[in-house]
Deep mutational scan, measured.
Amino acid sequence: MGFKLLSKLLVYLTASIMAIASPLAFSVDSSGEYPTVSEIPVGEVRLYQIADGVWSHIATQSFDGAVYPSNGLIVRDGDELLLIDTAWGAKNTAALLAEIEKQIGLPVTRAVSTHFHDDRVGGVDVLRAAGVATYASPSTRRLAEVEGNEIPTHSLEGLSSSGDAVRFGPVELFYPGAAHSTDNLIVYVPSASVLYGGCAIYELSRTSAGNVADADLAEWPTSIERIQQHYPEAQFVIPGHGLPGGLDLLKHTTNVVKAHTNRSVVE
């Protein structure tokens, strides 16, 4: 069995187990497998329904001669939608809004960016022009300005110390501490036991640490421990890039980060 097929099978099995364990909360999309990078042309966006009122959005972007996937989250909030992270750029984010209108038909009224990198804030200006209120932590807003990236308009308070959590509509926002970046936030959907790890969490097929220019490698494993301790009931975990899975993604990420750190020390 090929690795790609095995990865998709694991996603399907995880979703099936969740649907059985929580039949009222989960209505997993039966329309197909989780979209992969090879299936999404740059400039297009796919939506994948995880649970009743919960979707991931998947886009792709060219970077350094390669094409990478990027995940975000959409959560229903009454007759409105909360968006977590842009679709990595203005063109993708405009396509995301169009796809949401086509498939869901509810307005996106608020959006949260989970850290300051372009795959999370690139497209904020498109959201703002569409009347979406954009939010991020003060740290993310400051770092985005320093980096020359787009800056969300509103500040999220109460997320300055490791372990801080605040309720934001249908989700809980959690600051686990520094990891992929010093400002990275985690998003949890309690009604569906869905954990969105953003770039602080890796997919299972990833074996290298990737972009760690703004990471705190020493603190990252401790931050992941905080996530595990705060959300032990999480059933569906979405990484910032690639295929979702279960809580095993947290341990896998820790292993990859520690291996990278150990290699760096040896070198």
Rank of each mutant, 00 (worst) to 15 (best):
P239G: 03
I74N: 05
W88Q: 00
D119G: 04
S62V: 05
D183C: 00
S161L: 12
A66W: 06
H230K: 15
E219G: 07
L10C: 14
D79H: 09
S113C: 05
I50Y: 03
G169D: 06
L82Q: 00
A129T: 10
P23T: 10
T253W: 02
L10A: 12
S162I: 09
R226V: 08
I84W: 00
L82C: 00
I186A: 09
A192D: 06
L185S: 05
C199H: 00
Q61Y: 07
L247R: 15
Y68H: 08
D118N: 11
E33N: 09
E33M: 09
D164G: 09
V124G: 05
L156K: 06
L106I: 13
T222I: 11
S31I: 07
V265L: 12
G177P: 00
E219P: 04
S31N: 10
Y34A: 09
G131N: 13
Y135Q: 03
R263E: 15
Y175I: 00
Y231W: 04
D164I: 06
I151E: 03
T86A: 05
L143H: 08
P170K: 06
R128N: 13
S70C: 05
V112N: 02
N255W: 13
D79C: 06
V265E: 14
L73M: 15
H180I: 00
A209V: 09
V54L: 06
L96N: 00
G43Q: 05
G123T: 05
V108H: 00
G32P: 09
G148V: 05
P176Q: 02
R263L: 14
C199P: 02
G246P: 06
G240E: 05
E99S: 14
S30F: 12
A90P: 14
T153K: 11
L97I: 07
G122R: 07
A66L: 15
V132Q: 01
S139V: 13
A178P: 13
E101N: 12
A87D: 00
A130E: 11
Y135P: 00
L204Y: 10
Q49N: 10
S139F: 05
Q49D: 12
E99C: 06
K4S: 09
K91L: 14
A21Y: 15
E172T: 04
H260S: 13
T14W: 06
V171H: 03
V126C: 02
L24Q: 11
A51E: 09
R46T: 08
G169E: 05
S208D: 13
F26T: 10
D118S: 11
D183Q: 01
Y188F: 11
V146W: 12
A192S: 11
H117M: 00
A130D: 07
D119P: 01
S264F: 09
A94Q: 13
D216Q: 08
Y48H: 11
S161V: 12
D79I: 09
H57V: 03
S191P: 07
K102L: 11
P221F: 04
I227K: 02
K258C: 08
Q235R: 11
Q49G: 12
G163D: 07
S62I: 07
T254I: 12
R167Y: 10
N211M: 08
G197Y: 00
W55K: 02
T153P: 05
S113V: 05
S160T: 13
S56H: 08
V67K: 15
I40W: 14
Y34T: 09
R206W: 14
S161H: 13
R263W: 10
Q61M: 13
A200T: 06
T254A: 10
A259H: 10
A87E: 00
Q228D: 07
G242K: 06
G245D: 05
Y196R: 02
H241S: 03
M18Y: 15
A94C: 03
I186W: 03
A200K: 01
S38A: 11
Q61F: 07
S62T: 07
T182E: 12
A111T: 07
P239Y: 03
S137H: 08
L250T: 04
N211D: 05
P170M: 06
G240D: 06
D216W: 04
R206P: 06
A90N: 08
V121R: 03
L185W: 02
L185R: 02
T254N: 11
N71M: 03
L24S: 14
H154A: 09
L156C: 03
H180V: 01
Q228R: 11
D248E: 14
E219Q: 10
E80A: 10
I224P: 01
I238E: 02
G246Y: 03
L24P: 11
D64I: 10
A213W: 07
L247F: 13
A19H: 06
L204S: 12
A130S: 11
P152E: 01
L97K: 00
S137K: 08
S193K: 14
R142V: 13
L6E: 15
E219D: 08
V124H: 06
V124D: 02
S223I: 01
G122A: 09
G246M: 06
Q49R: 13
N92T: 05
A218I: 12
G72N: 03
S31R: 10
V265Q: 13
I201V: 14
R141Y: 05
E172F: 01
L83A: 02
L82G: 01
R142M: 12
F236T: 10
V124K: 01
G123W: 05
T109K: 14
H115W: 00
G78L: 07
S155A: 14
H252D: 02
S161W: 10
I224T: 05
R226T: 07
N211W: 03
A165C: 06
W88C: 01
E101F: 08
L83T: 01
D29I: 09
H230I: 10
A136D: 03
E157N: 14
A259T: 10
G43V: 05
H180C: 01
K251G: 12
E99W: 07
N92Y: 03
N92W: 00
A25W: 14
A95Y: 15
V146D: 13
L156S: 03
L249C: 02
S181D: 00
L13K: 14
I20D: 14
I100E: 00
D77V: 03
G242N: 04
Q235K: 09
D164F: 06
I227L: 08
V266K: 12
Q229W: 11
A136C: 06
A87R: 00
I104P: 00
D77H: 08
L6Q: 09
Y202K: 06
S7N: 09
G89V: 02
E145N: 12
G169V: 05
V37G: 15
E33A: 09
H241I: 02
N255E: 15
G163T: 07
P41A: 14
C199W: 03
L143M: 11
E267F: 10
Y196G: 00
S191E: 13
G163R: 05
V112F: 06
G89Y: 06
A179M: 06
T86L: 00
S7F: 09
V45Q: 05
T153L: 11
P35M: 09
S137P: 07
T114R: 00
V256R: 01
S16K: 08
N255S: 12
V45W: 02
L247W: 15
I104T: 04
S27M: 12
R110V: 11
F63G: 04
M18P: 07
S160G: 13
L97Y: 02
A15V: 08
A129F: 08
T134V: 05
N149C: 06
S208C: 06
T140H: 04
G2K: 10
A192G: 11
A136E: 04
E147H: 15
F174K: 01
D248Q: 14
V257L: 13
I17H: 07
A94L: 14
R76S: 13
W88Y: 01
H230V: 11
T60A: 12
V42L: 08
V265G: 12
D214I: 04
L47T: 08
N71L: 03
G78K: 08
S139T: 12
G43Y: 06
G123C: 05
T60N: 12
Q103C: 10
Y68A: 08
I238V: 09
T182G: 10
E225H: 09
R110L: 08
V237I: 06
L250R: 03
D214F: 03
T182S: 11
G148I: 04
I17D: 06
T36R: 12
K251T: 13
Y175D: 02
H252C: 03
A95P: 02
A144P: 06
L106G: 05
E39C: 07
L6M: 12
L159T: 03
K102H: 15
L204T: 09
Q49F: 09
L159P: 07
T134P: 01
D119R: 01
P170A: 10
I186T: 12
L13Q: 10
R46I: 12
R142D: 13
L249G: 01
Q235F: 06
E145L: 13
A130Q: 13
I74C: 02
E101A: 14
S62F: 05
D85I: 00
P107L: 08
A200Q: 02
A213T: 11
D214A: 06
E150G: 05
G198W: 04
A19T: 15
